[in-house]
Each structure stands twice: as C-alpha cells, then as structure tokens.
C-alpha cells in the first residue's frame, strides 16, 4: 500500500493573498494566514498539511509563482 504525501512552500513575502490557490486545492490544505506579510497581504499557508498530496494545482494557478511543491511517494514500510 502506497500513499502520496506532498508539501508546499510559499514565498511568503511575494504572496499577494489572492486566495486562488486555496480555491483550487482539492484537499482543502491551504488557507490565508490571519497575519500579513510586509506588503500587508494575508499570505497562503498549509492549514492542513497532512492532507496535501502534492498535486500542484495551487502552484499551477498561482499568478505570482510563489508556491513550490514537493511530493513523496510513501509506503507503509517506511
């Protein structure tokens, strides 16, 4: 049995908090942070990291290319 786990890294200071990533995430991983970055935007973060599959949907729709995506194929023998 294999399970795919993913993670995203948001370039916080470049994020404009548009929310398109959160809207396109099939696993409801992403939310906008209540805190703001230096430019005053509520930046995106992994609210629910365990659910991330690394599908890259968020990065694909991100207009500012601030999301980097990693994916790991894990097996139970790990």
């Amino acid at each position: 049995m294999a399970k795919v786990r993913g993670a995203i890294v948001v370039a916080v200071e470049k994020c404009k908090g548009c929310g398109l990533c959160a809207n396109s995430c099939p696993a409801d991983v992403i939310k906008l942070e209540k805190k703001v970055n230096a430019k005053g935007y509520n930046y995106a973060y992994m609210f629910n990291p365990e659910a991330c599959t690394g599908c890259t949907n968020c990065a694909t729709v991100c207009p500012d290319s601030v999301i980097t995506v990693y994916r790991l194929k894990a097996t139970k023998n790990n």
Partner: peptide
C-alpha cells in the same frame, strides 16, 4: 514535512525564465 521538502521530491518550482522580481500585477 522536512522529509517531504527535499530537492529529490521537488515537483513544481518557478521557471528560471521568470526573474525574481515581484510581479506588478494585482493579486489574482
């Protein structure tokens, strides 16, 4: 998370054909 965020697991990053400058477009 640290086990996932490793170079060998990278599946999406910004193309080098874009500069590092923050785009001037509005959010979204």
């Amino acid at each position: 998370i640290e086990d996932i965020i490793k170079q060998e697991n990278l599946v999406f990053s910004k193309t080098k054909n874009l500069t590092d400058k923050t785009m001037s477009f509005c959010p979204g």
